[in-house]
């Protein structure tokens, strides 16, 4: 029943949008009707899928690198307090830099290939992953940590047995945010140029004033983000089978 509410809400918005277009309240070249957008989506589907592939490869590469780097930094910052004190403010600073602003610089430094795009996605995804992991390490039960220490367990053992599993909840929360950041980051970086990708496709259709296609690609971008977030949920359920027994 709860899932019905947003579906009804979306249906109302689409109906209102269609009505606005049919009544001619907004010029068609500025706001194509939902029907026209669907027709554009169907006709352009093969091309959009081809561009999606490029975007997804960039997103996966950037996200994968950010997860690996966040894991390494989170472990080091958890193990060595001085690294936490030194690194945390720098990590916060990376979040204050607008990705749109640094994208042209990255293109200037690394060209129009995949490298600047992957770096931009990395910058966008690293911080949420790092914070999620550090927060997750902090969720480890202090009593369990004391118990492990009383049994003379070393840091690596505690990390493997206690801290990393306790961090899984936080990790998946961070991952859910980061997958959507990675797709959006890839599209933004592609606006600045390149051979392919949804952002490149968007730029082309915008220049051609084909706004029905523009809307079609926006829908595909959103759908990809939603599907990836759902995929994270599915993986989380599979990776944490004990969760279903825990009391809410």
């Amino acid at each position: 029943m709860n899932k019905l509410y947003p579906l009804v809400f979306i249906a109302i918005i689409i109906a209102a949008w269609e009505l606005v277009c049919r009544l001619g309240l907004v010029a068609e070249f500025m706001l194509p009707s939902p029907g026209k957008v669907v027709r554009a989506l169907i006709s352009e589907f093969p091309a959009i899928m081809g561009h999606s592939r490029t975007t997804l490869i960039e997103a996966a590469a950037g996200l994968g690198l950010s997860i690996a780097a966040a894991l390494v930094f989170a472990v080091l910052m958890d193990r060595f307090e001085f690294l936490y004190k030194a690194g945390y403010p720098v990590a916060v600073m990376t979040q204050t830099v607008p990705t749109v602003a640094i994208a042209p610089l990255l293109v200037l430094w690394f060209g129009y290939g995949m490298a600047p795009k992957i770096i931009l996605i990395f910058v966008a995804c690293f911080f949420p992953m790092l914070i999620a992991l550090l927060g997750g390490f902090g969720m480890a039960d202090p009593g369990v940590l004391r118990l492990y220490r009383s049994m003379n367990a070393g840091y690596l053992r505690i990390l493997r047995d206690v801290k990393l599993p306790y961090a899984l909840d936080g990790f998946f929360s961070g991952l859910r945010i980061s997958v959507s950041y990675s797709v959006v980051g890839a599209v933004i970086s592609e606006w600045l140029g390149g051979e392919g990708g949804l952002g490149v496709y968007m730029t082309r259709v915008r220049k051609a004033f084909a706004f029905d296609k523009m809307f079609a690609v926006i829908i595909v971008t959103s759908a990809i983000s939603l599907l990836l977030m759902k995929l994270v949920d599915v993986i989380q359920i599979a990776a944490m089978p004990w969760k279903k027994y825990e009391k809410k």
């Binding site: 009593g143 004391r146 118990l147 009383s150 047995d161 599993p165 306790y166 899984l168 944490m240 825990e246």
Partner: peptide, 13 residues
């Protein structure tokens, strides 16, 4: 051996 007030079992094991 040190057994504490809470069972301190790891929920994921």
């Amino acid at each position: 051996g040190y057994m504490q007030q809470n069972d301190l079992l790891l929920p994921f094991k």
